[in-house]
Each structure stands twice: as C-alpha cells, then as structure tokens.
Design a protein around this nucleic acid. Sequence first.
DNA 1: GCACGGTACATGCGCATGCATTGAATGCAA
DNA 2: TTGCATTCAATGCATGCGCATGTACCGTGC
Lengths: 150, 150
Amino acid sequence: MPMQQKAFFCYGALMAAQKSEAGAASGLVGQWRDILAVHARTMCELDRELHQHGLGASDFEVLDVLAEGSAEDGTSGFRVQEIATQVHLSQSALSRLIGRLEKDGLVERGMCSEDRRGVRVCLTPKGRELHGEVRPLQRAVLSRMLEPGA
Amino acid sequence: MPMQQKAFFCYGALMAAQKSEAGAASGLVGQWRDILAVHARTMCELDRELHQHGLGASDFEVLDVLAEGSAEDGTSGFRVQEIATQVHLSQSALSRLIGRLEKDGLVERGMCSEDRRGVRVCLTPKGRELHGEVRPLQRAVLSRMLEPGA
DNA sequence: GCACGGTACATGCGCATGCATTGAATGCAA
DNA sequence: TTGCATTCAATGCATGCGCATGTACCGTGC
C-alpha cells in the first residue's frame, strides 16, 4: 500500500529546536520560533511514524475527523466542506487527499442527497481499521513530543 | 520582482481555528490541534503579508538569520549549514531557497576560505534593505496573531 | 420556465519541499 | 602519497500544496 512514499520533512527541526528550546521564548519572535520548532519537530515525528502505515499527517487528520464523527457502523459520513473546517488544508488539497484515500480503499465518496453538488465521505471498514491501528501511535508521538517531561 | 508567485496557503486555518480556539485545549490532541491552528493561522497571515514584497515565510526566516548575525556592513555572512540549524528546512530546500534569493539579488554566495566545500552566504545591500523594510510587518503580524488581546 | 449570481467540489498548473544521489573537498590512516 | 570514509552543498526526482479555473448544481428574482 504505497499511498505516499515520501514527505518525511524532518528538516533542521531537531537541530533548530535546541536553540530556543530549553526555555519558553521571551519576545514575540521567540514565541513564534518556539511554535515553529515544536510544530516542525512534532510534525516530523508524526509523519515518520505514520508513513510506516502508508499515511501522511494530513491523511490521518482526515481519517481522525471521519472516525470521531461517525457512528460505529460508519453510516452517514461527512460533507467535504465539513471536513475542511476541521483540517488545515485548502479545498483543493483536501479534494485530492480524499481522492488518494479513496484510491487506497480507506474512504468512500458518495452522492449527497440533500445537495447534489456535495459529496459525502465516509470511512470504509478498512479505513476504520487502519485508523484504529494508527491512532495509538499518533497519541504516543504527541505525548513524546508535547509532554513536559520529554 | 516576482520571486515567488504562489504559496499563500491560507487553507481552512481561519475556520478551523474557531473550533478549538476560545480556550486552551484540554488533552494532548487538543493541545496539538491548537498548535496546528495557531501555526496555520499565523503562517497564513505572514505569507500573505510578505508576498506583497516578493517573499515567502521561509525566505524571510533566512534573511532574518542573515541580518541578525552579520555586522552592519554585511561582511562575513553565514555558512549554509549554519543557516540550516536556524531554519526548519531540509538542506536541499535551503540550498534552492538561497538560490532564489541570489537570483533576486538579495544575497550573495561566496567561496568559503576555510573549507572549500562550504559556501558563504551574505546579504547584499538590497537584501538588507528589503529585510529592514519587511521586518516591522512581520512583527506586526506576530503581535496581531499571537498577542493575547487578539 | 429562464436567467443570473453564488456555492460545492474537481482539475490544470506552477511551486516549494523532502529524499536520494552526486561531485567536490576534507581529514585520517595506512 | 594513496586510499577511503565523511561532510558540504547542489541536483534529479516525486509529491503535496495553494491559487485559479472549470463544471455541476442551488436559490432567487423575473
């Protein structure tokens, strides 16, 4: 399931972190630098972890939204625009992301009866399973990177 | 000076922010969501502002490093790898970014006398000027997005 | 019914990014 | 000196992303 091969983007985060790390930043720019550092570090680890299961960070975000929002039987699903409000992606990026997830059999796109412009997206059993399998890993990464005693 | 035409990436940040906004998040995932939201929102604004001057957020980060680190006369400059430790970019991305800045006449690449594999990068007067012109805008965005009374 | 503006999603396109690799230069050891 | 592992930066390549646009559909006003 090669879904996405690359995109680890682990860049200078780890090295860059050490500078402003070791203490909350002072000024605005320091605060911003810290945000960038934490974001980069965590994103990096997250992606690295998720990639072993064929997912990127954004993919997981979407799966997570779908998994949280739908009943256990994966009935209704979400409108694309509803997902868009929960995820930091442009509409076009989200559209393509859903396309990839669909191609990998993790979600299904369906017509939206109320508004035929709309598209309903819902998890497949396979998608739900993968999400369940991967979520603990994500939580682990978060606690590893965000918890104070890191 | 068209440097970089696109890359506003203003995605769903503004909308997505509203959800977990209005209060620090509770759990780890909430905390992470907040980081994502703040990062996306601020990045968006920053890019939007900087683009009016032909720069992207990463471009400014590099200019900022160079401006802070070199004496007023813009003498010495930095090694690429030194810049890399201050910026959350891969080595390759940084190399190309510097290439773009050079093409736009904002920085200059020079030989490194101590290690001829290395490259010294330093601001041109034009680069220094642009940085000085743009820095207040960046600070303004940060205070607008990060300050408590936002 | 029809025209028109607005909305929802998909697609064309250009760009920046990361990974892997390359080529040059260094430093160490035989 | 030669040989080899290492490091620095540049480049080939694949991918995801945002913007602009396209297409289908909705809703309103006529």
